[in-house]
Amino acid sequence: MPSETPQAEVGPTGCPHRSGPHSAKGSLEKGSPEDKEAKEPLWIRPDAPSRCTWQLGRPASESPHHHTAPAKSPKILPDILKKIGDTPMVRINKIGKKFGLKCELLAKCEFFNAGGSVKDRISLRMIEDAERDGTLKPGDTIIEPTSGNTGIGLALAAAVRGYRCIIVMPEKMSSEKVDVLRALGAEIVRTPTNARFDSPESHVGVAWRLKNEIPNSHILDQYRNASNPLAHYDTTADEILQQCDGKLDMLVASVGTGGTITGIARKLKEKCPGCRIIGVDPEGSILAEPEELNQTEQTTYEVEGIGYDFIPTVLDRTVVDKWFKSNDEEAFTFARMLIAQEGLLCGGSAGSTVAVAVKAAQELQEGQRCVVILPDSVRNYMTKFLSDRWMLQKGFLKEEDLTEKKPWWWHLRVQELGLSAPLTVLPTITCGHTIEILREKGFDQAPVVDEAGVILGMVTLGNMLSSLLAGKVQPSDQVGKVIYKQFKQIRLTDTLGRLSHILEMDHFALVV
C-alpha cells in the first residue's frame, strides 16, 4: 500500500459497493488471473465517493441489488447463522422517566444476534452475496479491517462455511474481542490505534497488504460494500417497522461504517417519512454534520465500534436529520445504567446512543415513540467499562463513588512517597548505550525526554532486548525507535489509591 493515498477510480455505471474482489474501477472485475494482476490496485480507499443510485421515491424494481426479506425461524435451526436477525424490541421503562421523557422509549437489542452484535447481519450478508456472485469459493481466505464486531461476525460465518479468516484490528480494541476471535479460529493482526486510516500501518493498510500477498484472499470491505446497508434496509428496518406496527417518530443510532443508519433510515424514509433520524458520533470522530460539531482538541476516545477519521463510502449522511456528539463518560455511564436499571447487557456504544436519545427525544410528546439501536453486548468489555477499576483509572468514576473498604494508605498523596527525580535518556542515544546505562543503574525503564525536557515516551529494558533479539533494531539504532509513546501519567497530588489502580493494569506510571 502506498504512503500517498491515490484516488480510487470510478467506473461508468453500476453501484460502487459490489461485493467481491475490487477492480481499479471499484466494481467486480472478471477475466484471467493475468488481467486481474495487471488491473487490481494495491488498495482502494474506504472513503471513495459513493456511486449508489438510491433515491427517495425511486421504484424498488430499479435497484441493481439482490434483495432479501426477513424469514421466520424454524423450530430447529440448521446452523447458528440462522440465529442472525429477528432481534427483540424491548421497552426501556426507567431511564426515559428518569430523564423526563414523555414518549415511549424502545430498544432494538442487536446483541441477541448469534455473534453478539449488529455486525453479524452485514457479515453474513457480505459472505452470502460474495458466494452468490462467485467471488468467494471453498478454501478462500477472508481478510477484514475491523474494530472487532464485524470480525467476530465474519469469523463466526467463516467457521460454519469453512473459510480461512484473518482479522486486522487496532490495538485499542478489547482483549475479549481478541479472545472470541481466536476461539472462532480467526487469525488476528493488531495495528497502532493512532495510525491514520490511509497510513500503511493502519488496520485498513495492513489488511490490503495481506490481501496482495495471500492468494485467493478477499477483503469484503464493510466500508464500501453495498451488502452492509442492504442488510439493514432489507431486514433490520423491516423488523423495526413490523415490531412497531409502522408507528415510530424517531430513530437514534450510533454511527461507525454508517451501514446501520443508512440502511434503516432509507427504508424508514420510504415507509415512515415523518420519522426523524438521529445520528450519534463520538467526540474525536469526524462523521457528524455540520462540520463545526467535529471541532475539538480530542483525537482519541475509548468507546469502541463507532466514529472514524474518514467518511466511509457506505455512509449516506443525507438521510440523517440531526447529529449529536457523545463523550466517553456519558457513554459508559449510560451503558452501566442500562445494565443495572433495565437488565440490558449492552456495550458502550449503546450507552452513547441512549445518552443522546434522552436529549433528542425531549421534543417528542406522549403517545409518540423513539427507537434506539443497541449494537453489541457487554461480553466484549468485561475488563473495560464493566470494571470499576478501569473506570477509575480512566477518570470516568471517582473514588467516592465506590463504597468498598480501602487499605490505610489509600488516600495518601503520591508526594508522600518522597520520590527522587528519575533517570532520563535522550532519544538520540543508541539502544546499546541505553541498555548499558539501565543495567549500570539497576533500572528496568526510563523516560525519554528531548533537550527541552519534554517527555516523549518510555523505554524499557525488556522491550529493547526483545527488539534486538527479533532483529527489529540494532544496538547502533537510536533509542527513539523503541519508545512507548502511550503511558499513564500521575500527579504528586493524586492518591496512592489512584496509582494502585493504574499499576494493576500497566507496568509503570510516570509522575509529573
Rank of each mutant, 00 (worst) to 15 (best):
Q222N: 02
T135P: 03
G151K: 01
G20V: 12
T191Y: 01
V206Q: 06
E270M: 05
Q55D: 11
R164I: 03
K94F: 03
D120M: 05
H203L: 05
A60P: 11
Q222H: 02
V206D: 02
P215S: 08
P41I: 10
T146C: 04
V168S: 04
L42E: 09
D133L: 11
P2V: 10
G256H: 00
I261F: 05
R161D: 05
C15Y: 11
S19K: 12
P229R: 05
M250S: 00
N212M: 09
Q243P: 05
L210G: 05
M89I: 10
M250T: 04
L56A: 11
S27R: 08
R182C: 12
L268P: 00
G263P: 01
D238R: 12
I166N: 07
V118K: 06
E62I: 13
M250R: 02
H67M: 03
D221C: 06
T262R: 00
T5Y: 15
E62Y: 14
A8G: 10
I219E: 03
A130L: 05
T13Y: 02
M173Y: 07
M89R: 06
I142C: 05
D198Q: 06
A155M: 09
E9D: 13
E270G: 06
E213L: 07
V252Q: 07
R125D: 15
T257P: 00
G263Q: 01
K82G: 10
G259F: 00
T191R: 00
D35V: 12
V178E: 07
S254I: 05
C52W: 03
D234T: 05
G31C: 12
I167S: 07
Y223C: 05
R91K: 14
F111L: 08
A155D: 04
R276T: 11
E37Y: 15
H66I: 11
A158S: 07
F111C: 01
L106K: 08
S199A: 04
Q242H: 13
G14W: 08
N194F: 13
R91W: 01
G139M: 06
T5G: 09
P88M: 04
A38D: 11
L241I: 02
P200W: 11
P64D: 08
L106P: 07
R91S: 07
A130F: 06
H232W: 03
T135H: 11
G256C: 00
K25R: 09
L210P: 00
K119R: 05
E144K: 06
S19Y: 09
M126H: 06
A195L: 03
Y233N: 08
K108I: 00
T87S: 07
P229T: 06
K94D: 02
P64R: 05
I92M: 12
K72I: 10
G185W: 05
L106F: 15
Q222Y: 00
R58Q: 14
W208A: 12
E9N: 10
L241W: 12
A69Y: 12
D179Y: 13
R18K: 15
D234R: 06
K267Q: 13
E4W: 12
L268N: 00
A226D: 10
P138T: 15
A158Q: 02
D140N: 03
P16C: 03
I143F: 03
V206N: 02
T87P: 06
S175W: 09
H218D: 03
I240C: 00
A155F: 06
C244P: 05
P170T: 04
A8D: 09
A48D: 14
D238Y: 09
E187H: 08
L136T: 06
A60K: 11
K269G: 03
Q222K: 04
A158K: 02
L251R: 01
H65Y: 05
T135C: 05
H66A: 07
S117D: 05
I127R: 01
H232Q: 04
M173F: 02
G148I: 00
S227Y: 10
M173Q: 05
P215T: 06
C165S: 05
G115F: 07
L184P: 01
K172H: 03
E104S: 13
K108R: 01
I152Q: 00
N212D: 15
F111D: 03
K30M: 09
K36Y: 09
G26C: 09
A158E: 02
